[in-house]
Design a protein around this nucleic acid. Structure first.
Lengths: 230, 230
DNA sequence: ACATCATGACTGACCAGTCAGTCAGTGTGA
DNA sequence: TCACACTGACTGACTGGTCAGTCATGATGT
């Protein structure tokens, strides 16, 4: 459950070079150690926050609980995040940003539509549905409305890029006559079962299982199987 | 601790027959007036609650605000609902229960799949998306996870019935060879764009409009257009 | 000796839920 | 028809408790 480890915590603490040339090496080493510890704490807090936000919602989550779960005093949280809201926003940003690159790359390669759809489905299942990112997306769905800034960030930095990349591939396919035009107008259709799965999973999984992989596979087959004019 | 006093006020106030046969009619009329007013208040409270819950979420909503918006004192809310949680649950129940009948009826008629899909889409747009029920469904999506009882009610009383009704029609179509088998396994696929639309509407509508009707129409066309074996 | 990081007790604001009191409307008796 | 008693729906100030955010103090490393 450590998968957030790769979230660019190295961020160069800008400036601060003055004097003490003698201890340069030692200083650097020390700073590196500190940064590492600091990043670890930040991560622990984010992880704990995800748990608490997920099970209680933004308003319902208690920072005391986040602190306890992270093995840290409450005040420490405020050394890393301005307030509860920023903690939430950083959580979403930190967990979802790394996906963007992967997704954009997808639009560059000239693959067939079905190939692309399969890749999207696979990426979603492996990198979102089967990880804690699923919970982050669920949080985004549940609470995003009350964080307009975050919704905006998410739309511009994540969604619109995905939509653009997918649309690109779809347009090519339309031009080749492989698929009807409608799909290129609403690339969201491809993602619809993914959203459905996350919502269903949160609400009804205990009554009726839903096999996401299968769900998406069937959906894609239905959408893309070759068809004749009616 | 006097709540419950007037919950379900139609309740035959058992016994209590003593004299005064003369005023029977007047008494009935008076009671009718009271009941009407009472129902009106209940409605006002539910309406106000929907507004507040929608914009602030369950935890974020203040009963003081609900009361003010309903034009009622805070205490009055507690004459009609045991506590905040029951208010929320009643809200969802009251708004969604009326739909169930309509939906079940749909499974009874032996229509074609596309006909059924069109009807579902139309019903959804007219009775949910274009009404305040959309907000109720959104609340269910956002907060349902923290109300297991409510999720259970919703699953058993609403969802599973829809799924069963739709599945029935789909099975017939499969038997006739009209559609491939996959869809009958996951009738949820038909509803996926509806969920997507509600989520999108809440989060991103201000950046990019989404025409639900068109979205669902295209999706249905893609799913059901006749196809040849690959 | 100093800088930085970390702590957790504390504070002030906030809010769900309560309850003593009010009063509009109803029944009763003359 | 009037006056008086009675009822219970309604009110809103209040209470008990909670929690985000602060800060005086302590720990650690250089």
């Amino acid at each position: 459950m450590r998968q957030t480890s790769n979230l660019r915590k190295k961020e160069r603490r800008s400036g601060r070079r003055r004097g003490a040339e003698r201890t340069r090496t030692a200083g650097h080493a020390a700073r590196a150690v500190r940064n590492a510890r600091s990043a670890k704490r930040r991560d622990a807090i984010l992880n704990a926050a995800l748990d608490e936000f997920s099970s209680r919602g933004f308003e319902g989550a208690r920072l005391d609980d986040v602190a306890r779960r992270a093995g840290v005093a409450k005040g420490t949280i405020y050394l890393y995040f301005r307030d509860k809201e920023m903690l939430f926003q950083e959580l979403v940003r930190t967990m979802l940003t790394p996906l963007v690159g992967t997704i954009e790359a997808m639009g560059e390669v000239d693959v067939s539509v079905t190939e692309m759809a399969d890749r999207i489905a696979d990426l979603f299942v492996r990198e979102v549905y089967e990880t804690r990112r699923k919970d982050v997306v669920r949080l985004m769905i549940s609470e995003g409305r009350r964080f307009p800034k975050l919704a905006e960030f998410y739309y511009h930095e994540v969604l619109s890029r995905i939509v653009a990349a997918v649309r690109k591939v779809l347009r090519r396919a339309v031009a080749r006559g492989e698929i009807p035009e409608g799909l290129a107008q609403y690339p969201q259709i491809i993602a619809a079962p993914a959203i459905l799965a996350i919502v269903w999973n949160g609400l009804f999984e205990r009554f009726e299982q839903l096999d996401v992989r299968q769900l998406m596979k069937i959906h894609i087959e239905l959408l893309f199987s070759q068809r004749r004019r009616p």
